[in-house]
């Protein structure tokens, strides 16, 4: 609209004489050319082509919309849905497997704990038994030693008694010998009673 006068000016020399436009085209080629070839309105505001653009945009964009809506988007949606399902399914499987693995681990731990407890029990029993056996053998040994000690003591006592009995006889004989050596007369009965009195 605001270019319209310029367009009018340019249109005239352009149609009339070729050489005349050639000269300004060198210095001011830009403006002279555009406005010479076209109506001179800035192309995006040129209303002449509005109906054409609206119509073809409606047709072409409409077809595009239909094509996307009917073919492409359902297909893309389907692809994504299948993948989402598949991933969800795989995740479920993974979760289930993890649960199974956890259960297996728990069972293993349980087994291990049981085995350990059992081993403890067995060990304890073995230890107790060994202790009891040791105790018993110690007792047996002690008992044997005690009897032998008692035997030895009784033998010592009998030997001592025998020796003590001999001591009396020896003392009597010695006393008689001493008395006779002194030139006396040994009274056997008196000496025996003296020795017995001395010993008691």
């Amino acid at each position: 609209m605001f270019v319209a006068p310029a367009f009018a000016q340019e249109q005239a020399p352009d149609t009339n004489s070729e050489p005349l436009t050639q000269t300004p085209a060198i210095t001011d080629g830009t403006t002279s050319h555009t406005e010479a070839e076209h109506t001179g309105v800035f192309p995006p505001f040129e209303t002449t082509f509005f109906p054409s653009q609206i119509l073809w945009l409606a047709i072409i964009f409409g077809l595009f919309y239909l094509f996307l809506n009917k073919v492409v988007l359902p297909r893309l949606g389907h692809i994504l849905e299948v993948r989402r399902d598949r991933i969800a399914q795989d995740l479920d499987t993974a979760a289930r497997m993890k649960e199974e693995a956890d259960a297996a681990v728990a069972a293993y731990e349980q087994e291990l704990a049981d085995a350990r407890a059992k081993a403890n029990v067995i060990g304890q029993e073995a230890r107790d038994r060994a202790k009891a056996e040791a105790e018993a053998s110690r007792r047996a040994t002690e008992a044997g030693l005690d009897t032998r000690l008692a035997e030895a003591e009784s033998r010592i006592a009998s030997i001592k008694n025998a020796a003590m009995a001999d001591v009396g006889v020896i003392a009597e004989e010695t006393a008689i010998a001493i008395v006779e050596a002194l030139g006396g007369r040994a009274d056997g009965a008196a000496i025996a009673s003296a020795v017995a009195a001395e010993r008691s």
Binding site: F49, S52, L55, W56, I60, F67, V72
Partner: peptide
């Protein structure tokens, strides 16, 4: 004017490329 123009051609090309 409902002419098939270069604009229409490139609309069609746009749609064809994207589609």
């Amino acid at each position: 004017d409902f002419s098939f123009t270069n604009s229409s051609l490139f609309m069609a090309l746009t749609v064809a490329t994207a589609g």
